[in-house]
Design a protein around this nucleic acid. Structure first.
Length: 155
DNA sequence: AGATTGACTCTTA
DNA sequence: GTAAGAGCCAATC
C-alpha cells in the first residue's frame, strides 16, 4: 500500500498499463516505465508488481494478481528474475499457460524470446490517437477475453 | 530517524 | 564478452 497519493497514482498507472499488455505477449519493466513517462524508474515498476495483491477472498482490491497480468513483465533481456524459490517457475508456468514459450539458457535462467513475444509499443493503446486535449480519464473496464491464438513461427 | 534492499536499466571501463 | 557505478525511490530493517 502506497504511503502517499503520488505513489498511489504511480501504482495505479503501472497496474493499468500492465493490463494493456496483450495476452501471449511480454514486455519489460523499463518499457512500462517509459510508457508512463518515467523512463528512469523501471525499479518502481517492479515495486508495484511486488505489492500487487492476490485475489484472496476477504480482500477487495481493484487491482489484483487475477486482473493484472504481472507475468507478462520481464526484465530488459526477456529473462525472468528470481525473487524467491519457485517464483520464477510460477511466472514461467503462467506464461506458458497463455501460449508463450519459455526457454532455459545455459546458466539455468529462464527467458522468453522477445523478438517473437515482445510487446514494445510507442505508447499505450489506451492513449493511441488521443491528443493533449483529452487527459487521463479512467473508466470501468470489461473483463472476459476470448482469444484465438494461431502460433506460427516465422523462420 | 538513518541505512539497506530490491519483480531494473543504462552507461563506462 | 564481463564488471562496476549511477540513478531511482517506496518498502523494509
Amino acid at each position: 500500500m502506497p504511503r502517499s497519493d503520488e505513489a498511489e497514482w504511480w501504482f495505479n498507472a503501472v497496474y493499468a498499463a500492465v493490463q494493456e499488455i496483450p495476452r501471449g505477449k511480454v514486455t519489460s519493466y523499463g518499457h512500462i516505465a517509459r510508457l508512463l513517462g518515467q523512463p528512469q524508474r523501471p525499479r518502481q515498476v517492479g515495486v508495484c508488481l511486488k505489492h500487487l495483491p492476490s485475489n484472496e477472498p476477504g480482500t477487495s482490491h481493484y487491482y489484483h494478481s487475477d486482473n493484472v497480468p504481472w507475468q507478462r513483465v520481464l526484465n530488459a533481456k526477456g529473462m525472468i528474475s528470481h525473487r524467491g524459490p519457485g517464483s520464477a517457475a510460477r511466472q514461467a508456468a503462467a506464461l506458458r499457460r497463455e501460449g508463450v514459450r519459455v526457454d532455459t539458457d545455459a546458466m539455468g535462467e529462464m527467458y522468453v524470446d522477445l523478438a517473437r513475444y515482445g510487446w514494445f509499443p510507442d505508447r499505450l493503446p489506451s492513449e493511441e490517437g488521443l491528443t493533449e486535449e483529452d487527459s487521463e480519464d479512467e473508466d470501468g473496464e470489461g473483463e472476459g477475453e476470448s482469444e484465438s491464438e494461431s502460433e506460427r513461427v516465422g523462420g
